[in-house]
């Protein structure tokens, strides 16, 4: 996965060299999935998934609904259990339950499709709750950090409001700030723009692109091709619980190798 030195001769054929952000150096493996399997009853939703995400990498997971991409994303911080195989974050295998799991989850930021801001708490309290209760940060420090983060995602002036008073796009940006407040090693985005009105999609994507440019490790389940092209190092295409294809975004969108991916792309790109 080393992409610091573009090889001469055949750059286009190399897996990572022609990624739009190929000047960045990817670090050590951060999230590792080994032979992960999961069933929902009869349905085999994750079939022998092997995937490594490196420090600083932005990975976009794409695929038709029901392909297992959300399940994959949720399994990484064990909101979904897996039947067998292993998932490790920063070298530590996901614990079963209890304190160790909570600790590990604190280091994995999660952004949900439906925002899931704590409905009974103000925007500011949403962002300070984790640092205070999980990290033991003082109220003053947590609020200072929260205000910085809220400014960064462009909702600094909404700090005193309740989530229900915000637009979807604003709520999702608060949710990103809440996840960032834990200073996570990796950020998971589970279809972060799918529940948004079209005019609010970009304000959220802009925040995500900025985050990617700062070198955050990100796993993003999305259908936003623009984001994938602009910010992703690698696109993983899933269908029927399997990883069908992996490629740099430009390569994937212009010349998908598998029939399944070509079919999927033709359906979403023809409009």
């Amino acid at each position: 996965m080393d992409q610091s030195t573009p090889t001469t001769g055949q750059p286009a054929a190399d897996e990572t060299v022609d990624a739009p952000t190929s000047d960045r150096v990817l670090g050590a493996p951060l999230v590792e999935l080994n032979h992960v399997n999961k069933h929902f009853g009869e349905l085999h939703v994750l079939q022998d998934i092997n995937l490594t995400v490196h420090k600083g990498e932005v990975l976009v997971v794409i695929g038709p609904s029901g392909s297992g991409k959300s399940t994959l994303c949720r399994a990484i911080n064990r909101l979904e259990t897996i039947d067998d195989g292993s998932i490790a974050v920063d070298g530590k295998t996901l614990p079963e339950e209890g304190k160790a799991l909570a600790q590990l989850r604190a280091e994995v930021g999660m952004v949900f499709q439906s925002f899931n801001l704590f409905a009974h708490k103000t925007v500011l309290d949403n962002v300070t709750l984790g640092p205070r209760k999980v990290r033991g940060m003082s109220k003053k420090d947590a609020e200072e950090q929260a205000r910085t983060l809220l400014d960064r995602v462009g909702v600094g002036n909404q700090a005193g409001k309740m989530p229900a008073q915000l637009s979807g796009g604003q709520q999702q940006r608060v949710a990103i700030a809440r996840a960032l407040a834990m200073q996570p090693k990796v950020m998971l985005f589970d279809e972060p723009t799918s529940a948004l009105d079209p005019e609010m999609v970009n304000e959220v994507l802009d925040v995500m692109v900025a985050l990617a440019e700062e070198g955050m490790t990100m796993i993003v389940v999305t259908h936003e091709m623009g984001f994938a092209r602009k910010a992703a190092h690698r696109v993983v295409f899933m269908a029927d619980g399997q990883i069908v294809e992996e490629a740099p975004p430009e390569e994937f969108f212009t010349a998908p190798k598998s029939e399944r991916a070509r079919d999927f792309l033709s359906k979403i790109l023809t409009h």
């Binding site: 909570a102 949900f112 984790g130």
Partner: peptide, 23 residues
């Protein structure tokens, strides 16, 4: 209380009792 509230609480590293008490 929507399930997402509990998931968000767990996702920021709260274990069962703190998540129940706070969220």
């Amino acid at each position: 209380v929507p399930l997402g509230q509990a998931e968000a609480a767990r996702a920021i590293g709260l274990s069962f009792l703190p998540a129940a008490r706070l969220i």
